[in-house]
Every structure is written in structure tokens, then in C-alpha cells.
Amino acid sequence: MKTIQFLSLFALSGLVLTSCSDDDPEPVNEEEVITTMTINLVPQGGGTAVQLQSRDLDGDGPEPPVITVSGNFSARTVYDGRIVLLNETETPPENITVEVEEEADEHQFFYTIGASLSAQTEYSNVDGNGNPLGTQFTFSAGDESTGQITFTLRHDLKKPNDGTLADAGGETDIAQTFDVAIE
């Protein structure tokens, strides 16, 4: 009798233990992910805005980012650029730009214009120390041409730096290249 009691207790405890370990794990809430970078470029003095976007909903999964360019730039026009970063794995999407701007002294955007593209960029916003941040900038389209523009966001970098990625160092949060045309 006692043996049976003991065994059933044993079996019961086994059941309890097993059911504990069978609890499904929680999915990880990825907090620092940037899935989407949207760059809105509005021509000063009016005209058609241009939107550049890179969207990678599976993060470091196998799918490459989807790159879209809404249209071409107009020649000899200055555009006001504004960069918006989103984490779309969360609902509603989290605006990461806010975080970047809060920690402006640890972040900086870099704009790399391909050799064939006739354009220039200039920083429009700075961090608390007066060093460039670059979530806002101006894009001056020159003569008709085609080429690439690369946007790189770094954190934990050297500030101030000489404006090159090599000098700045740090960690890359974003590095995306867009094929654009000026007409």
C-alpha cells in the first residue's frame, strides 16, 4: 500500500515537473531592430518630393532589404531631407529616430555620393556639442546624372571626425545604397 502511494506520488511529481518544462518559451521582443529607413526629400520652393526607402522586415533573416526610390530628382534643385527610422516588428511601429536624436552625441549619419552623381549634401542638425547628427540634411542636386547615394548610420563613433567613415569608426546601424537619377 505504502509503495503504491509512494509510486503514485512519484509519478505525480514527475507529471508536474514535466508539465513545467513543457511551458512554451516566450518569443523574444527585439528592441533595437531597425527594419525601415525612410528618407523624405522635399524640394525647397515646391515641387515633387522624392522618397527613398529600405525595408527589411525579417531583420537578419535570409530576405534582403527591399529598396524603393519613388522618382528622380530635378536638376539644380535643393531638397530638404528628413530621415525616419522605424522598428516595424512592433505594433504600432516604434520610431527609432527619436532614440537616435536623444542620443545624438553617440550617433551620426554619413552620406556617400557615388562619383558619377552630380550632387552635394550638408548636415542640417547637430548634437548637443555642435557636431553633425544628420537625421536632417540638405541634398543639392546638380546637373543631369545617375549614380548612387549611400546612407550610413554609426553609433559609438569618434565625434568630431573628419566626415569620413574611416576616421569616424564606430558601429554600423544602417548601411544602405540607393540608385538615383537627376533629370
Partner: peptide, 9 residues
């Protein structure tokens, strides 16, 4: 290599 928004890894 695989591509992400942070570049290629």
C-alpha cells in the same frame, strides 16, 4: 553573405 539593413554579413 546575407544582406540586412545594417549591410551585408
Amino acid at each position: 553573405a546575407e544582406f540586412t539593413i545594417r549591410g551585408a554579413f
